[in-house]
């Protein structure tokens, strides 16, 4: 199989095209949101959000299947992002609070799902996604949710960057950080919701965090970070899907498509890290 065949053949199949559409929308928004997560150092909070959204997904899924999944997740995302914003604002140490609250939430989700008949199969779907069985309605839902998340951060992007750079200066300029924090945490939660049915709740974090980290390695030019993260994420998704398809068709090896995409993302990070180290060596400086 030639390269063009590797890259394009599989996507003639509708289920592959749908998977690509979902991942393209996710890549765009996760790239932009992910850069802000990186600049703000919100990786741990994002991890908390993925756990917190899980019971909403589980309850919605148990309640009314795939449609309920989005509704339940959206409600959980809203509640979790508000709770999280308030916890992060309080002056008590937040890491322990976040860990306690959100692992508890996650456990509630597992308990809810475990009461279902086909427990193992359904839990697996929610945790690891079912990228290749995403239906046309879900594609639309995912794109709409991604669109809302993108809009929320894109409209406040320069303020979000100011907030990330210098919290005190931002407040001193007369802004209210609470509003911006709610918007960013809300956008992160929306990405978690949108990504759950595709790559699963456990792998969402990679989609949120890796592209932003790669962009940081590749450039120090502020406004280039966002397109680089989005494009990197999109290319990795494409390659991951093509790889999974080729393995299945040519070699008869069934790979989990969500996990394959995540591994390609991480491999991309490793390549970017290596390139960064080499470039820094060649330039003979240690500054990143």
């Amino acid at each position: 199989m030639d390269l063009a065949g590797f890259l394009f053949d599989g996507f003639a199949l509708p289920f592959m095209a749908r998977a690509l559409a979902v991942l393209a929308a996710l890549s765009l928004v996760a790239g932009v949101v992910g850069v802000l997560v990186n600049l703000r150092g919100l990786e741990f909070i994002s991890d908390g959000l993925t756990h917190a959204v899980f019971p909403g997904i589980a309850i919605g899924f148990v309640w009314s299947g795939q449609d309920g999944l989005f509704v339940g997740a959206l409600i959980a995302a809203l509640v979790a992002s508000v709770a999280l914003t308030l916890i992060a604002r309080s002056k008590v140490p937040t890491d322990a609070a976040i860990a306690v609250v959100f692992t508890a939430m996650f456990s509630i989700g597992v308990v809810v799902v475990s009461r279902e008949a086909n427990y193992a199969g359904q839990l697996e779907q929610l945790l690891f996604g079912r990228l290749l069985t995403v239906g046309p309605a879900e594609v639309v839902q995912t794109i709409v949710i991604c669109g809302v998340a993108l809009l929320v951060v894109a409209l406040t992007l320069k303020e979000q960057v100011f907030r990330a750079f210098d919290h005190t200066g931002f407040s001193a300029a007369g802004y209210r950080p609470l509003l911006l924090d709610l918007m960013l945490n809300g956008a992160i939660a929306l990405v978690v919701v949108a990504a759950t049915s595709a790559v699963g709740n456990l792998l969402v974090l990679a989609v949120l965090i890796v592209p932003g980290a790669v962009a940081r390695l590749l450039t120090s030019r502020l406004w280039l970070l966002f397109p680089i993260a989005a494009v990197f994420s999109g290319v990795a998704a494409w390659l991951g899907l093509a790889l999974g398809y080729a393995a299945s068709v040519d070699l008869g090896i069934e790979l989990s498509s969500g996990a394959t995409v995540v591994l390609v993302l991480v491999a991309g990070y490793a390549v970017a890290l290596l390139a960064r180290i080499l470039v820094d060596r060649l330039r003979g400086r240690t500054e990143r």
Partner: peptide
């Protein structure tokens, strides 16, 4: 390590 230039920082003073 924040990826931002001096003039981008100064521009923040205009955002409000």
């Amino acid at each position: 390590h924040f990826p931002i230039t001096l003039e981008q920082v100064v521009m923040m003073g205009r955002y409000r």
